[in-house]
Design a protein around this nucleic acid. Sequence first.
DNA 1: AACGTGTGGTAGC
DNA 2: TATCGCTACCACACGTT
Length: 853
Amino acid sequence: MDDDKLLAILESSQEGEERGLGPEERDPAETLGRLSDDALIEYMTNLSQGARKDFTREEYFRDKEIKQRERDEATRAGLGRANAPIFAGCTIYINGYTKPGRLQLHEMIVSYGGKFQHYLLAKKKVTHIVATNLPLKKRLEFRNYRVVRPEWITESIEQQKLLPWQDYALSWDQEQRSLQLKVASAPVSSAVDCKDPNFLKTFFENSRLHHLSNWKADLRSRFLSEGFNKPSPGDALSIFHIDFDCFFATVAALGCESCDINRDPIVVCHGSKSSDIASCNYVARKYGIRNGMWVSRAKSLLPPGVELVSLPYNFKEIEEKSKIFYTVLKEYKIKFDLILPISIDEAVCVVIDHHTPHPIDRDEICRELRSEIWKRTGGCTVSIGCSNTLVLARLNLKIAKPNGYHILTQQQLVENEADWHSYLGKFQIDDLPGIGYSIVSKLRSLRQHLNNLLQLKQYFHNSLPLLQKCVGKKTGSKILMYLHGKDDEESSRMIFEPESFFARKSLSIEINWGIRFDTVQEIDNFIDTCADYLVQKLQEMNKRTSQITLKVLRRCADAPIEPPKYLGCGECDALSHNCRLGIPTSELGVIATELKSTFRLLGCPPKDLRGVSIQFNKLIEVSYDQNENQQRLKLPFQKTLNFDVFDNLPSDVKNDFSKELKRRNIVLTSSPRPKTSYAATYEEKFMEELPTQIRNEVKNDLRINRKITRTKLSELREQNRKKKESIRNVRAHLLGHESLFEPIKFQKESRFKDICRIVMEWFDATLIEGPHEKDLLLFENYLDKLSDSNRVPLILRFSKLISVRLNLKSNQYGQEAGFQEWEQFLLKNVIPKLNKNKHTFQTVRKLDIDFDI
DNA sequence: AACGTGTGGTAGC
DNA sequence: TATCGCTACCACACGTT
């Protein structure tokens, strides 16, 4: 019966031709063979539950698509960075017969940075279609696409740049020509719909905060790669905190002929109403306008007759000015021991006093730096705060702004209490670094009218415990340090341990604007795009991650569907969940799968999703040894640690051991035996894939188990009994020990791992001409025995092995008869055996985890 | 006490 | 037309072992 259901689903995909699909898409066996493991399991689960929902053809293709994209990634990665990303941002579909052929074009596109769409299902995604001629039907279907001749690809590669597609358009009617014009006249793609594959790119291109963060990360990594002198604690220092005055606004104003930065209120922003003000000049500030304020509010602050000047961002120019800024600092006649990058327009320069033969003239340094930067940037002013501690340099900077400098040392200030008090009286509480509205409101909850630092000092003069109780232990002592003009431990790290302070410990992105989805599929696609972006960065850094966090913004129950800010996230609850990967990875497939499954765990209705954030938390440097299949980690343990040894340990010790092994990412191997090179690499591969997928199964199991608990309480006891029994048996069987059951033999082998090896070798040897009928019968016989004795997880293992293997080989052998016979066998003879005993299947699957730690 | 998780705050324009 | 509300890091509260 299950077979029938399966066939029915597969047959429904035979209608490929009518839907305008190429011939390749019509082979259902191939489709199943290429399913990801998770999709396969989900499918099997569905079958075993009596098809809870239809697993549609579209879903098959979508999943297949993901797999293929992963392969494309691998192809690209295999090339190194040899080819220019000519087709970056292009998603290309090839229709019908072409010259050069589909395969060659595919490779060209992928290796030059493009995306290849195997099917036209997700029509929105495709940016170009390649074809040489089109039947009438297709012309109609494609009339809204950019259809080009294959020469567009080949000649773009020849000339090493993306040629205008219009020159290669395969145009056939008026409509197509008008499309050409329309697209040609459109300035740049401004994908504001989060379902558009280019959304992430356009969003980031226009996001000031993204740029700020990105620039900062770049500056930090550059800082670490260049040399510096690290002071020792106790060294006398001169600290210059240098910062542009309203940087974005100044840069924008310099590029605007008609406006005067000293006369007009100028703001930098995208829009005209609910748009954030990135930066405003000091004329605007006079009216109470502030950075971060919405434009509408800013406008309302201006008196009648005064017009607000809104200027667009000029990120490129900003970058240029910043480059000049840092160059000036580096080339200054007095060599700074440290040039600490705070942000794109802000740096802290440190001179270790005893490094210079004569005492330095701080006034002169401030004056010279300011005028030099003003000259070289063509009119940007910086302000400088100078002192001998970081916190005072920052406070002095506040006094210096705009367009000035201020020098005062801690000794000068604290010497005379009256001076110190009048100094403190000049500052708001949140002028202190690291103190924002939240801490201020906590302090005010204790005493309403705390306004400036002097009042703060007087209120808490000697009561550290009270302060700490109010704002937390560290924050409390930090504030008290600041009130004496000293740096706390954490900010001192910037100077005394810059290597660790500026080292990257995590990698993340978040998008909390423009997020409006309807279905989980769309979100999956978006997560794929995000993961793709992050993984690329991760690989560029030559790192791997072992912990991933997904954070989601979910519209508050009582918040309006559309918030006041256009496409903003509005009022949201933040939900986050992290998951650990058994083995550090930088593989897109593993990471994306994990994320998508985590999203489901968070249980946010697709329509209420307002923000997505993905973080890689534990980053690990990839060493050469790790590249070599992590041999180094394993080898020292291989002699002493194998399953047999492990299994003989007392159970409590075993528990400790497994935790420690997990922490160190050490995978237990089977007992030493001469391995063929193939078996070794295969095993590695398999082991590597297990942990993450097994976790997904657990999640699935939990869900299913809950369901069972609710509906079939009486069966639960029996299930548990069975489960315990089979844990013993399966373990024993896998380890080749005595068991309640006779060990089941196949080809004279009884150890499961050995049987796997044989089957895989057999599989590889028969990929072309196909397995012999008699052999298949023997194997099926073995599977039946497994099934009869309740050893369903082992059958599941075989399904996985074969499916993974098929996937691996599909590029090379996909067309071979043997390949297709194996697919059929998996489909008709292996998978159905999983459903013989539903409950056992569902619960026993969990054994895999117990076993593999 | 030592660790892990999820949440929240802060900084740059 | 709108609009582009990022991201690294620390600290905290609370839970587990």
